[in-house]
Design a protein around this nucleic acid. Structure first.
Lengths: 134, 134
DNA sequence: CCGTATCCTTCATGATACTG
DNA sequence: CAGTATCATGAAGGATACGG
């Protein structure tokens, strides 16, 4: 049922698996781009069990640079996955938590993780086979 | 229940949401990296309804360059998501199809797509709000 | 403690032209 | 038809230093 249809003028519409993908306003693109980021999914998982402070996240994920931690949190906040709360302590503390949207998304991420765990071996095996044939 | 544990020597183990993430051999990383690619999920969807020839995929997804189409197909084949079948016609024709692993993965991708469609508006709204505040 | 600012490197992608 | 080869570029990510 895959089809491609051109509109009357210039604007192109792609239909795949019953879904419309337009060049720009594709609903999926935004979400996939977020998953694609190196740290985004991990950050969602890190906040799965409750709010966390900036420094706590750094300790939890030592491999991330401060720059990337900030940026990842900003991106996720901007898209509504996480919330940022500042407490006027001295020095100030900032707490991040999943929004309802983020919690909804967490379900997908967990599904992804579970699938990965189950099929990881098959993937590694396929890779080995392919590389051996090359 | 998030914890970080250091092993006796050097090797670092990160535990998030009950899962172990080691620097290299992380089962999730491979999968997420694949999803992250610009065309990978779209390609999986494109093959959802059955096998497709190279040229058919080009027509279906006009925005992809030949180079990226080839590379995306190669990557997915290497990881075992899709199969490549060459038919000795003149000129030769090549058909790509989802493997069982790919079909299993398709379920996740569809879940992702559905979620995106449902929550796309919320995300766009969050973005608008955030940008307005800035 | 929680960031910004700056610089730098690498990699993914795109454009284009050519081949069995 | 189904690719390869080559070159160019922009974005993503890392390292480091500084600021409120």
């Amino acid at each position: 049922m895959n089809k491609m249809a051109g509109k009357t003028e210039g604007e192109q519409v792609i239909v795949i698996a019953g879904l419309v993908f337009k060049g720009q306003d594709c609903p999926v693109r935004d979400v996939v781009d977020n998953i694609g980021g190196k740290w985004n999914t991990l950050m969602i998982l890190a906040l799965a069990d409750g709010p966390m402070r900036f420094s706590a996240l750094r300790r939890l994920i030592p491999d991330i640079s401060q720059r990337m931690l900030t940026q990842t949190l900003r991106d996720l906040q901007r898209d509504g996955y996480i919330a940022r709360a500042v407490f006027p302590t001295q020095p100030p503390s900032v707490e991040y938590s999943l929004t309802p949207l983020g919690q909804s998304f967490l379900v997908l991420v967990k599904g992804l993780v579970d699938w990965s765990v189950v099929h990881h071996e098959a993937i590694r095996a396929a890779r080995a086979t392919y590389d051996a044939a090359a």
